[in-house]
């Protein structure tokens, strides 16, 4: 069982950072939804608040890790220029997709949308997390603000979802691959 270095990094970008970020976004939506029916945040213990803060900070870090690793590590592999004379496009996913009219849309629609919309998710969730932490003691105002930011959290979840969904499909159609081969386990074991 083997994977290339680029496949491992792509998996870390998409499945670890991106996937866990999206799950955490969903968790925030649940938290916000629950608070609609609660009065302030008084029923949460100090330890609960501390855990909530850690959860929010980790979520924000995962979001930024996903977009930064995507834009500065994986995306350059995806959009690498094909050297003259090279006809095998396996290591050039963007060129591979664009070489066939049946797959070009995965780049012209999918990647072109994903590469930009993805940045909105951590930007919005940073704001949502900050508001949730800043106003956790503000009683009724806290409830109103949580209701307000829930719309932005939903938008962030959808933006992140678009990016993740297209990322997964694009990597299925034209996988980012190459680099040193890493053996995870010997065949048959």
């Amino acid at each position: 069982m083997q994977m290339t270095w680029r496949e491992i990094v792509t998996a870390i970008h998409g499945m670890l950072f991106g996937g866990f970020f999206l799950m955490a976004c969903f968790g925030v939506l649940v938290l916000l939804h629950r608070s609609f029916g609660a009065r302030g945040n008084s029923e949460v213990t100090d330890q609960g608040r501390r855990r909530e803060r850690i959860f929010l900070i980790v979520m924000v870090m995962l979001g930024w890790a996903a977009v930064l690793s995507g834009a500065y590590i994986v995306y350059p592999w995806y959009r690498a220029a094909v050297p003259p004379g090279v006809t095998n496009l396996e290591l050039y996913p963007q060129r591979l997709l664009m070489s066939d009219p049946h797959t070009a849309g995965w780049h012209t629609l999918g990647m072109e949308w994903k590469e930009h919309v993805a940045w909105m998710a951590p930007m919005l969730m940073t704001m949502v997390a900050w508001v949730m932490m800043k106003y956790e003691d503000a009683g009724e105002e806290h409830r109103r603000l949580r209701a307000m930011v829930s719309g932005f959290a939903l938008a962030a979840f959808l933006a992140g979802g678009v990016a993740a969904e297209f990322g997964a499909w694009i990597n299925k159609k034209a996988p980012v691959t190459g680099g040193p081969v890493i053996t995870l386990s010997q065949d048959g074991k």
């Binding site: 930007m123 508001v131 800043k134 109103r144 603000l145 307000m148 930011v149 932005f152």
Partner: peptide, 17 residues
Amino acid sequence: VANGAAGAAVLAAGLGC
């Protein structure tokens, strides 16, 4: 309970997007 800081954060996020 002054909400100005929250307003600034929300508006800035909208502007950034």
